[in-house]
Design a binder for these strands. Sequence first.
RNA 1: GGGCAGGUGGUGGAACGGAAUACACGCAUGGCUUAGGAUCAUGUGCCGCAAGGCGUGAGGGUUCAACUCCCUCCCUGCCCACCA
Length: 817
Amino acid sequence: MPKYNPQKVERKWQEYWEKHPELTEAIKKSEKPKFYCLDMFPYPSGDGLHMGHVENYTASDIYSRYLRMKGRNVLHPVGWDAFGLPTENYAISIKAHPAEVAQRNIKTFTRQIKSLGFSYDWSREIDSSDPNYYKWTQWFFLFLHKNGLAYRKKAKVNWCESCQTVLANEQAEGGICERCKNQVIQKDMEQWFFRITDFADELIKGLDKIDWPESTKTAQKNWIGRSEGAIIRFEIKLNSKAKPSGLLRLSLRRDNLEVFTTRLDTIYGCTYCVIAPENELISNLKSQISNLNEVEKYIVQAKKKTDLQRTDLAKEKTGVEIKGLKAVNPFTNEAVPIFVADYILSTYGTGAVMAVPAHDERDFEFAKKYKLEIKEVIKNENKISSVEKAAFIDDGILVNSEKYSNLTSEKAREEMARWLEKNNLGERKTTYKLRDWLISRQRYWGAPIPMIFCEKCSWQPVPEKDLPVLLPEVKDYRPKGTSPLGTNPDFVNTTCPECGGEAKRETDTMDTFVCSSWYFFRFADPKNEKEFADEAKIKKWLPVDLYIGGAEHTVLHLLYSRFFTKALHKHGYIDFDEPFKKLRHQGIVLAEDGRKMSKSLENVINPDEIVEKFGADTLRLYEMFMGPLEDSKSWNTKSIIGLKRFLEKVWKLKSMINDQGSTNNKLEILLHKTIKKVTEDIENLRFNTAISAMMILVNEMEKQKNILNSQFSILNSLLAPFAPHIAEELWQQLGHKDSIFLEKWPEYDPKLVKDEEITLIIQINGKLRDQIKAPAGVKEEEAKRLALESKKVIKYMEGKNIQKVIFVKDRLINFVV
RNA sequence: GGGCAGGUGGUGGAACGGAAUACACGCAUGGCUUAGGAUCAUGUGCCGCAAGGCGUGAGGGUUCAACUCCCUCCCUGCCCACCA
């Protein structure tokens, strides 16, 4: 028998699978129950596949192959998130066209994926940069626009100087560009937004009914950031005798300062108000501000700062009092000073707060610095609340709050809100951190936004029949602040769909996350030219049953996809409102030094090298054996050899088959226990322990004189989803003509997995003292008798009386003495 | 500062509240070999000659019994962070 040569075996079977796509394609017409097993489709970066991809795809491949053997009709598709900044930036760096680069990278990814033996349905391959695909990305834009969920507005937006484009909030977390890690600045620009905030509550509620990691659900909840509170209207009192002119009065509507608070119960402790530099109050009441110069100087400085500088916690809070104006607390009728400070965010709540230094850390810090009054209005009997040193921020009992004194915080919030509403001085209000999704990008490599601007008719959607709006060729696709699409007059100049007059196209492209927010629908019907996917086909395959991918997509892709799904649901396109029933993240594969694999650290392990050296089956097994799927783990090239040895043992085991020889009942029992263990472990995505169970079986088989063909075949079937190439080869060597993957998954005999003889643990006072063999199901009395016969036990029991006996069936007996 | 994961041999990691360290790597000794980074066998938590004792980040608690449950704290990683 020849030596196990993984390279030869793997090449052979990869060619075989290429000729037999029916082995991995989802069946269009079938009575078998469906299962949609999806990987987050990759953006084909120039670096090729990394170990995280291998881990992700191996896990889903094992699961898919297992389910097919179990008789399920599995949809396990593959595609490319080819549009977007990563591909474009890479293309620019090597001075190539993004489309060329994308296609080249897709080729590399395809080769690598095939070299690992992943069982994708290649007939459904999609590419988000293909006009046949992005036609439907544009359709989704029109769908949202038609339903009032896409709109254009001028707003302060995140701008990345390096990428030369605007970014969504989610892509500018902490004031850093998600892609290039450079600082993001704020700019006023008119842009397209998706109204994701309309679904804020549904996006929170939906989390309760899906099987996702708790950490991911919590992160989404925190990102949406729902808080219940109240709007309070403080009347503005002018210090100067000069009343504002009639015109100014009109423009104001009301002389009110609206603040948002979640701690209405602390209102009697409000000693000043603070507004964001962007708050309109300042420009509206300019003539009334006695220190206007000082205020405007502060605002100019604040606007110069990046978000990062403004939100730097280590930095002391700054602010300027707006002299000439006061705000009147509607509860106390007290006029308090108003400050402008850059720690107040214009985009959250009303862009203004009531400051209660005694009960808010930020207000406390500010009040201390500017020597403002600190008024205590909440007490807590259980905790010492000294507002001398720090703010007391917990709920408690109200004091110094007139008729609300002695109420609990909760009760007071309720009664105060009612009073506000009754007197029309404010109302209950729920606010969210979540902002609408800014989807415009001043970049080349994306789906053009299908909108046309006409001087007469304003913005008009491109008629659906005219889709796709093709991404035009341009001379220079590098970013330069405005979209490169604008440099192609043939693209820009068009006619108005409404009046037929001259008009210009929108030149921005869409955020690549728009492409990936709906791709999982397309896999149900990837070649459809009339719809994004046929209704019946969506019904057949969706929602996704198991979704595996990186945790870095928690608040981006996963939230956006849920939004798209909810929008489709709301408008009657689909009958479910959550896209991914079960979600799991693979852990990060760290380098051997425990740090992240990165080019700059020169610690990246390339899957190609490992496949070449050890074989794809070994790499697959190794990545699964490293530890639980969701844990991060350190790569260790030294340890791979153990998995190679395991496969070599299996290979050699085949020559031990002899059906004439005797068989061992113990081995048969172990075999069935292994079937049970491996089956359950795959179901629970615990691949590491499934592999160790197979190792134990193989070690035991090795010790036999001979093994039966049937026993080896079962082992081979169990191994097949993990190491498909070697399993196919051994199956063929056993004389079978068809693929092992057409075999049924082995079933265990429930009678055989039950032990006839068990090891009974004997404890004295909870400590192990002896272990004896006993028949399974042994009764307590008999177990006690057997245990007390043990020499060791006799020794320990000398001169002691048994107080109590704890008996756990088939497990242990514990004497308390 | 908040949230979420974690902390078990030399290493990666196992363990329905019931034998702590399965499985694998590494290491040690030996066999086979001209050779071994191949392979096979045996051993491998710590202290102790032994009997035995001690051991899952630290300290308490619940329990006949705790890696597992509860409380306090420390440390590491990831994510978010002036959200009123």
